[in-house]
């Protein structure tokens, strides 16, 4: 292998060969940004109702809750794990909130109960994966049934309704003008996750584990602890999403958020995160969330049914991964 070494280079090795700007322009995120702009323009031509501040604000509800989960899911997938139980955590957290509400508690207790349930579910997943070393895909397929199953045991075919008026703020309230609480929360969480993944030691550990967990362990990273925290974080974000969704719908049914885990995974993969772990960025997930929201909203304005939308997302998911690979294959001849 000696011949692969660039012999001409002396002892001082440059930090980077490509400037961050040229790299950014050729990145997956740049492509996603272009797609987002294209979808935006297409929508504004397709429907006269699109370019309206309030309509656009409404459109954000299509992705804010899913994106909150997707941020945590992105970190989990980068670390080489996955959590398919997130939607079921929402169901269970919402159910617990309903129970707390029925017991006569007010909004603060309801919210706390939702977040605590999320954390507890995340801790359970984390225990099985990080502590017992079980494969996360199977564990979370199991807890996916378990968590939602508990909701069904509690609720059966009933529903909790009658949440307090002030509880509605989280899913229906506006911070300022057209900026809903959920949208602001989405933006804040995007920033928090950006910093956590790209600007902290913890985030770097996540990448190291995703690329090579053994070498990460041999580099002094507490691999199991990082994995546990990631599941905890995913549980917490599911709890937050449960608060928002329950508040927005104003009711809890055991079937709440069904299928949301797949949408969150789709969002993460579309955002450029490698499903096998090791690479991906929060900005990509943010852009993927916006694209998915805009497409859903645009189709809605055109009265296209939701299921057609899901075909589109399925194609998008496969297409975005297949096209670069096919292109590479063609170039190689």
């Amino acid at each position: 292998m000696t011949m692969t070494e660039p012999k001409s280079i002396g002892r001082v090795i440059p930090d980077r060969l490509t400037s961050p700007l040229s790299r950014a322009l050729r990145s997956w995120e740049a492509l996603l940004f272009a797609v987002a702009v294209a979808v935006f323009i297409a929508n504004s031509f397709a429907s006269p109702y699109f370019l309206n501040a309030w309509n656009l604000s409404d459109a954000t509800f299509n992705f804010t809750e899913k994106a909150m989960i997707a941020f945590a899911m992105a970190m989990l997938i980068i670390a080489g794990e996955i959590d398919l139980s997130v939607a079921s955590i929402i169901a269970l957290a919402s159910t617990v909130m309903g129970l707390v509400m029925t017991a006569g508690y007010g909004t603060p207790e309801i919210v706390l109960a939702g977040l605590a349930t999320g954390l507890a579910c995340g801790a359970l997943n984390g225990f099985f994966v990080a502590r017992l070393g079980l494969p996360s895909i199977v564990v979370t397929i199991g807890t996916m049934s378990l968590f939602r199953g508990v909701s069904y045991i509690v609720l059966g075919d009933q529903a909790f309704t009658g949440y307090p008026k002030d509880f509605a703020y989280f899913g229906q309230g506006y911070v300022w003008w057209v900026f809903s609480f959920e949208l602001v929360l989405f933006a804040v969480l995007a920033l928090v996750f950006y910093i956590l993944l790209h600007r902290t030691n913890f985030g770097r550990a996540v990448y190291a584990i995703g690329n090579n967990p053994t070498a990460a362990l041999f580099s002094g990273i507490r691999v199991d602890r990082v994995r546990f925290i990631l599941f905890l974080l995913t549980g917490l974000m599911s709890g937050i999403a449960a608060v928002c969704l329950t508040s927005r719908l104003g009711s809890t049914r055991p079937s709440i958020a069904t299928g949301m885990e797949l949408e969150a995974v789709t969002m993460v993969v579309l955002g450029g995160v490698n499903i096998l772990g090791g690479s991906g960025r929060i900005l990509g997930v943010v852009l993927a969330a916006i694209i998915m929201g805009l497409v859903t909203f645009g189709f809605g304005l055109l009265n296209v049914p939701g299921i057609v939308m899901s075909i589109f997302l399925g194609l998008l998911l496969i297409g975005t991964i297949a096209l670069p690979r096919l292109a590479k294959g063609l170039r190689r001849g």
């Binding site: 090795i13 990448y207 190291a208 995703g210 690329n211 090579n212 053994t214 070498a215 990460a216 041999f218 580099s219 090791g278 690479s279």
Partner: peptide
């Protein structure tokens, strides 16, 4: 397997 984290830069 245990030494270098391939996929991460130097």
């Amino acid at each position: 397997r245990q030494g270098a984290v391939k996929g991460l830069p130097i």
